[in-house]
């Protein structure tokens, strides 16, 4: 793997398992000889990648692939089961308390649902301003001005400062969520499906806002989405996940022009595009397997058109196939 000079964020062998513990009835049944076991979901399975300063990395995958879990671990909301995350060269776990707090402020998250992620009983001024007062970016006297500036930066009028979230439309609420993240002056934004809930014309406005903010504030993004066309538009580099593992990462142009992994190829073929008319669909067969019971070997092998015996036994390693491009597929060995 390449060793970047100014890696903003480095994720190494990051793993997250969710264990469904047995309840009392289950434990008794187990004692009595039933084959009930604790169920483990390998949501994120030994994932490594780096994000450089100023880069926009798109993280793509279908539901259940672990992309949101990965984003939440990076944002510090979920503790990892194993592996490490370094921010600006320092491991999360090795940080002093002050460093940890600084990192937590520098990494902010923007959520998918603009209806669920804002407290309905708080005014916009409090939603956006609360954290920045606590962390000393502003004080109570100047809070209104500070919040007003933030609102204007994301395209909301400062006259709305006394309103409640329910008085705004979906697109405006998402802007409030962005302003709340920006208010603590972050360097790194994790956007988890941040535009998925918005209408097409509003989506374009928010995408443009993200791009403007990137230039004005020198932000770095991890842009999590299931929508390949949005990712293609906004990202410099794309990471594709399938059932908890990274299957391919590449610069955006190369990935979309010449996908390497069969899953990426399948995904790209399935994306509806405006320039395709009256096409005959040739879908990928099969379902996404349950992460409770993923297939052995390469997770994609039951749906892969190029499957070999080796794929059903041996887990393919994510390795460099060209400068800056990584792929986890046995076909590259031939």
């Amino acid at each position: 793997m390449m060793t970047p000079q100014n890696a903003m964020l480095e994720v190494k062998d990051l793993t997250k398992n969710f264990v469904k513990r047995l309840d009392m009835a289950g434990k008794i049944a187990q004692r009595l000889g039933s084959n009930i076991r604790e169920e483990t979901v390998h949501a994120v399975d030994s994932v490594s990648f780096t994000i450089e300063k100023g880069e926009v990395v798109g993280l793509v995958g279908e539901s259940g692939c672990g992309k949101s879990t990965l984003g939440r671990m990076i944002a510090g909301i979920l503790p990892p089961t194993a592996g490490g995350i370094s921010f600006k060269g320092v491991e999360f776990t090795a940080m002093t308390q002050e460093e940890g707090e600084a990192a937590a402020l520098a990494i902010q998250m923007i959520f998918q649902d603009p209806f669920a992620s804002l407290n309905p009983r708080m005014r916009v001024e409090d939603i956006i301003g609360e954290a920045s007062v606590i962390h000393g970016m502003t004080d109570l006297k100047e809070r209104s001005d500070y919040v007003g500036d933030m609102m204007e930066r994301v395209g909301l009028g400062r006259e709305y400062i006394r309103r409640y979230p329910h008085q705004f439309s979906g697109g405006q609420r998402q802007r409030i969520g962005i302003a709340r993240a920006l208010a603590v002056q972050p360097e790194f934004l994790v956007c988890d499906e941040a535009i998925a809930a918005l209408d097409v014309s509003i989506q374009a406005q928010v995408i443009n806002l993200f791009m403007d903010l990137r230039e004005d504030l020198d932000l770095t993004y991890l842009f999590i989405s299931h929508d390949l066309s949005v990712v293609e538009h906004i990202s410099d580099r794309v990471v594709i996940m399938y059932l908890g593992r990274i299957v391919e990462t590449a610069p955006t142009d190369e990935l979309f022009d010449k996908p390497n992994h069969p899953y990426t190829t399948a995904l790209l073929n399935e994306v509806p595009r405006l320039d395709q008319r009256g096409i005959e669909y040739e879908p990928v067969s099969g379902e996404i397997p349950s992460p409770l019971d993923p297939p052995p070997g390469c997770h994609f092998h039951p749906r892969c058109p190029h499957v070999t015996d080796r794929c059903t036994i041996e887990v393919p390693v994510l390795r460099e196939i060209a400068p800056g491009r990584l792929s986890a597929c046995h076909l590259n060995d031939q």
């Binding site: 439309s169 697109g171 014309s201 406005q205 995408i207 293609e232 538009h233």
Partner: peptide, 24 residues
């Protein structure tokens, strides 16, 4: 015209999307 212009994709990479001002 505006709706089609605001769909991101292959040809719009790195450019600003056309945005319909205001809301529904």
């Amino acid at each position: 015209v505006g709706l089609l212009g605001s769909v991101p994709g292959h040809n719009t990479r790195g450019e600003r999307l056309y945005q319909i001002p205001g809301m529904t």
